[in-house]
Design a protein around this nucleic acid. Structure first.
Lengths: 146, 146
DNA sequence: ATAGGTCTTAAACCGGGGTTTAAGTCAAGC
DNA sequence: GCTTGACTTAAACCCCGGTTTAAGACCTAT
């Protein structure tokens, strides 16, 4: 029965008010009531819905798909199967996305390791070899090392 | 010593050629040479660099930051510390991002569980209660259930 | 030598996801 | 009764990361 204002809702979820207005306009917050002065009232339902929306958004679901989900919520129990389906597909795609990021991160970690090694070697009194005449023209074309 | 054409590079990394041209224009692919006919030649260095760029991109590093990284690569060994620093910060931010997605996904999994339960219950011969007169006006304001 | 395929360029365009601006209304405190 | 602060709206604006378009140059096979 809590009636939450837009500023409270924004503070609660840590998003700008402008975003909440934008979401309403985009159809993510259906049936949002107004008070006598025309101000938005976020019901408990809307607060819960918003939590779900933000979970979906944090996992990179496009707003258009989130809107479809919300439309199904409003349509009622007949759409439970569709919603379940959507969430299961989304879940899979998120798992794939995370795995992809992990893989890329592994590649990055290898570079980090190399850089640490280089700096280590540099500090360990590795005097500049470039003053050795025998290496003078070896690396003439300025070697760019990743 | 392999000289790779833009089409080969694109195929190799599974990105459109237009993206590679765009990356060059944005400064992500410095010193890209051309053949007699003005076509881009991707050296081994560029192929390796591209792999790194794509790893950074897959972990959501903005192109501007990637460009900064590349500039440092070109500037040479003096910037190893800066690069290491950047990668370490990025690593942390990616780990945070992944953790955040995981958390959101946990919330989504809970909804999935509820939906599965509902469908389960519906299939288990739960006849429609709505035909029982005693429940007639209970849920008059159409209850929207997430 | 002509057609197809591949390449080049600059510039315009697109889609997603907001954010900002301008102009105005309202309620409360002084 | 007047200012202050929170709120409203529609529309314009912005950033990012490309993609598409138009016009043209070049190699290769027939």
């Amino acid at each position: 029965m809590k009636n939450t204002s837009i500023s409270e809702a924004a503070a609660h979820f840590g998003v700008p008010e402008s975003t909440l207005r934008y979401y309403e306009k985009k159809g993510l917050l259906p049936h949002l009531r107004r008070d006598g002065a025309g101000r938005r009232i976020f019901s408990e339902f809307h607060m819960t819905l918003l939590q779900v929306i933000l979970n979906l958004k944090r996992t990179n679901m496009p707003l258009d798909s989130i809107r479809q989900y919300v439309v199904w919520v409003v349509e009622g129990e007949d759409t439970t199967g569709l919603r379940l389906d959507m969430l299961l597909k989304h879940r899979q795609s998120v798992l794939g996305e995370i795995a992809g990021m992990q893989q890329a991160l592994d590649g990055i970690d290898i570079k980090i390791g190399r850089y640490e090694e280089r700096i280590e070697n540099r500090e360990k009194g590795a005097f500049e070899q470039d003053d050795d005449p025998r290496s003078r023209d070896q690396n003439h074309r300025k070697e760019v090392r990743l």
